[in-house]
Simulated assay, not measured.
Amino acid sequence: MAEDFQVAVDSGAGDGVVTGTAAGPPDGDTVLFLHGWPQSRHSWADTLDLAAADGHRALAIDLPGIGDSASARTDGSKVALAVVVGEVLAAVHARRPVLVGTDVGGMTTYAALRSVPGLRAAVIMDVAVPGVEPWPSVVANPHIWHFAFHTVPDLPETMVGGREAPYFDYFFDILSADRGAVSPRSREASVAAYATHERLAAGFDFYRTFGADEKANTAAAQIPVTTPLLYLRGEHEWGDIDVYDKGFRAAGITDLTTGIIDGSGHYAADENPEAVWRLVSGFLATH
C-alpha cells in the first residue's frame, strides 16, 4: 500500500520539507521517480505500483517548490534540485538507488549523475538537457514557444494564475499521442500542485534557470560519467533519438542505452506506464 512520507532538507534558502509517496517493501532496491512540469508526484502513481509489485522500494516526490514540497523551494537550477534529491536519498537510506526522471525531473537526474554519490543507475525520459545536443535546435524550435514565455519575470504567474487548468490542458492535449491520455485525476492533481503564486513561480523558475543549467552542464562535460544511463523517448515525441544518443556520449556519458516508449508522447508515465516500467525494469535487470 502506498504511503506518504516527508523529509526535512536544506534547499539553499533555509530548511524545508520534501513530501513523497512510497510503495513496495522497505528493504527493496530504491527507485526514486522525479516528475516534470506541470506535474507532481501523482503523475507516477501507476508506475509506482508496477515498480512496487516487482519488489522495488518505489518513491516519488514533489519537486522542491511544487505541491506538498512548496517549503523546500530552490532557485530552480537543476544543480540545486539535484542537491535536494541527494538529501532525500540519504534521509530514506536508499538501497542501491536509481533515479528515474522525466522532463524537468530528467534534467535534474542528469545533474545528479555528477553530484549524487552511489547511484546504481539512472533513467531520463522525454527531455532535451540544457547544454547537451540537440539543445540548441530544441530551444530554437518555434513550437517550443513556452520556454521563452516562462522565463519572463512575473508575467507567466500573472497570466496563468487562476487559469492553471486550461493552460496545463493545452500542453497535456498537444504533447500526448492521444488527447485524452492524461486522465482527469492526473490533471486535477497537477492544478492543485501549482495552485498558488509561489508554486507557479517555482515551476517557472525551472525554465528561468536554463541558462545556468547550460553553463553547468557544459562545464561538467569534462568529467566522464560511468553510471549506467537509460534514455527514453515516447514514440510520438519530436526528434530523432539517435541525435540524443550522440549528444549524451559527447557530453561524457560512457554507459548509455536508449529506447522508445510505445504509444506515447511527452507524458509517457500517464500515457503508457506499463511500457515505461517494462523498459526501466528490463534495463535494471542487466544493471
Score class of each variant (00 low, 15 high):
T109Q: 07
V191E: 10
G265S: 12
D46P: 00
H287Q: 15
T30H: 05
P136L: 07
V104G: 04
G131Q: 04
G67D: 01
Y244V: 14
I144V: 15
A192G: 11
V84I: 12
S264E: 08
V98A: 09
L113T: 05
G162I: 10
G203L: 11
S281E: 03
D62F: 00
Y267V: 01
D49Q: 03
W145M: 12
V129I: 15
V85N: 02
H150E: 10
A251L: 04
G263C: 06
H35R: 08
R120L: 12
N141Y: 10
K78V: 07
L59A: 06
N217M: 07
W135N: 06
G161E: 14
P134V: 01
H143F: 14
P117K: 15
F206P: 02
I144L: 15
A181F: 09
G282M: 04
P97T: 06
P228S: 10
P38I: 07
R163Q: 14
R187G: 04
A111M: 12
E274D: 08
Q39W: 05
S43Q: 10
G24T: 08
P134K: 04
I124Q: 05
F210I: 14
T151L: 11
V276E: 09
L48S: 03
V98N: 03
A91D: 00
V152E: 12
S11R: 01
I253H: 04
P64D: 05
P25D: 15
G16D: 05
E214N: 10
T257D: 15
S183Q: 08
G16R: 03
T19L: 02
P166D: 10
T30I: 09
T226F: 06
T286A: 09
D46Q: 13
V225P: 01
W277T: 02
H93R: 12
A148H: 14
D75Y: 08
Y244G: 01
E3T: 10
